[in-house]
Write a protein that binds this DNA or RNA. Structure first.
Lengths: 343, 343
DNA sequence: ACCCAAAATGTAACTAGTTACAAAGGTTGC
DNA sequence: GCAACCTTTGTAACTAGTTACATTTTGGGT
């Protein structure tokens, strides 16, 4: 027989504290939540008991009463691309200002993984979800539907989507970049983009490019969204019989990779070939030559998403879609096509 | 009077489902947790009721019984430096394999913010903590102490720390880089490093440099850890009367920034000046010239931290300190000092 | 000293699950 | 035909807080 403490260490709870302080549980609860209404010396007694027992209130028990867990989840393809890291940084900063914590889950751009991780987020009690793009698995849509979990789509603007979207018009964003090159007189342009599979942002950008009326020619190269992917694409492009006059990269990591790749091949940018990107990462401003790109307000997107989600959760105010505009930032990597007379 | 449903929409719970299916709450609970022991047709009845009521079990109620919330928190200075983003990516991947989610909080290298956010993590029920570096506010130490929350220090190896550390010996890491430059015959070296305030990793690296016995001269430049900070430092260095023979950057983002800064100033690397970094970010391998650097196994660190924390939480196995070694990766940005005859 | 309101505290019923134990139902052996 | 056992289900007591309401204490005014 072992009648005495077989498990001596166990987190102390409200009732332990109440007993130790010689008060009721309600009083302890008040000390925790509205110390103002408790008489000074009972407050001190209770505080002493709390300290003595190293009492830490249980988050779960609080959550069960308030119905609030105070955290939300975000699903992004990867953390390896600075564009998402920057987005999350802004999101976390603003959520934190609204007393919300952020659970991060990466999906590797796989819709099944995404749905799985979303389920985990629900299982642990996320009060809301931030997801990337508008294309998702049926399982995820079901989950959002049955839980009626506040969910915001980012990086993708689409006013007709049943879920609120906060993001850019990806078609327009890509067109900004292409139009700029067209205006500079380039007619033979290589497009370097990330995987199209499971990525509706890239698909939208590509279809934007193809929808733009102009008289030039596009050659597309698909690669991994990484510096290495960009560098390898540059090599591939340099291996072609006829080099393009300009290269358009649908993301800045790739653009920087392409720049490095071209430098390694001894091709001068922008003299021999112009280069534009999309994203406007800090690296694009600092690179030599600085890379002309389409600025995407990711930090603003993170903030807006955070505010919208926080409001949705606390006030049931369902946000409406918000369109953020890209902006062309002219730098040194794209110049007028020297082999053409543009007015 | 409003006796009828004044609030028609409320999440349904276990008892609602039990009532709807005509069974007891225990049976519904079994359907959820051990469907094997339930007779087939009751199982179907219950499942039907669950679907009909769109029942989703409450995470908080589960947590209150199991005592497990299934998530941990990580405190990092920033997401803007790829080194932390990569660390978190690996951490999240491995935690996810252990059925744990990751709450990310950024501290901006401010110990007060760090303590605040740690408190938030505890408030929402984190089962464990990953923190960066060994220097923290008293409030954070108190918190860890009173909650006895499994907490692992990363990016900093110190076998004598009361908390388990998983990381590099920062002094040694910096020495690897400096020794390499010394071996190449450089005697006048500029060191570019991030803010020293509240950052024990940087401090350790600097003291490592100063502890290395050699006959050269170090000039230190403090700057923000960013591309821009690096580029500006390069300009500052070029403005000196006597240019150093080599530049040692204590992180790779800064190294790349310095490279860009030097290129902008028309200084050729490595011909006129050698450059080495620390971290081994992907950009260092792809940059032109590729940057010689000390590889830090961040992904491995993320994985090891995840495994150690997961085990600590589930099996009460307190991990022991783990030292990860940096490794010099020789690339193109550092060459023998041309102005000297090194055998 | 006494009344009354305000302030402080206590009781017990909630929140939404899990689970030990009890009880009922069904099957098999002899 | 009935005991013995296994399968399946139900009851009620847990988990750790919050909170409506009841009760006690306190203080001021007369």
């Amino acid at each position: 027989m072992k009648p005495k403490s077989p498990e001596p260490k166990k987190r102390s709870n409200l009732r332990d504290v109440a007993k130790a302080a010689g008060v009721s549980v309600a009083t302890v609860s008040r000390v925790l939540n509205e110390p103002g209404v408790v008489k000074k010396d009972t407050l001190e007694k209770v505080q002493a008991a709390i300290d003595a027992l190293k009492f830490v209130p249980s988050a779960a028990a609080r959550a069960i009463n308030s119905g609030r867990t105070r955290f939300v989840g975000a699903l992004v393809p990867t953390l390896d691309n600075a564009i998402f890291a920057r987005f999350l940084a802004a999101l976390e900063r603003e959520l934190s200002a609204h007393q919300l914590s952020l659970v991060v889950a990466t999906t590797d751009s796989d819709l099944e993984i995404e749905a799985d991780k979303a389920q985990s987020l629900v299982d642990i009690g996320a009060e809301g979800l931030i997801i990337t793009g508008a294309t998702h698995s049926g399982a995820l849509h079901d989950l959002i539907d049955r839980t009626t979990l506040p969910t915001i789509i980012t990086s993708f603007f689409d006013a007709t989507n049943p879920l609120p979207t906060i993001g850019y018009d990806n078609e327009a964003v890509a067109q900004l970049a292409l139009q700029h090159l067209a205006d500079l007189g380039h007619r033979h342009i290589a497009v370097v983009h990330g995987p199209v599979h499971d990525n509706d942002r890239t698909r939208a950008r590509l279809s934007g490019l193809h929808a733009l009326p102009w008289d030039g020619e596009l050659t597309c190269y698909e690669t991994q969204i990484s510096l290495r992917g960009g560098a390898e694409s540059a090599k591939r492009i340099c291996g072609q019989a006829q080099k393009p006059e300009a290269i358009l990269c649908l993301s800045d990591v790739v653009a920087l990779g392409v720049l490095f790749g071209l430098q390694a091949e001894g091709v001068r940018v922008p003299d021999e070939i112009s280069l534009v990107g999309v994203d406007d990462l800090p690296s694009s401003a600092v690179a030599v030559p600085a890379i002309t790109t389409v600025h995407l307000p990711v930090s603003q997107m993170g903030e807006k998403a955070a505010v919208a989600l926080a409001r949705w959760i606390s006030d049931q105010e369902r946000p409406s879609a918000e369109r953020l505009d890209g902006q062309l930032i002219e730098r040194r990597s794209a110049i007028p096509n020297p082999s053409r007379l543009t007015s």
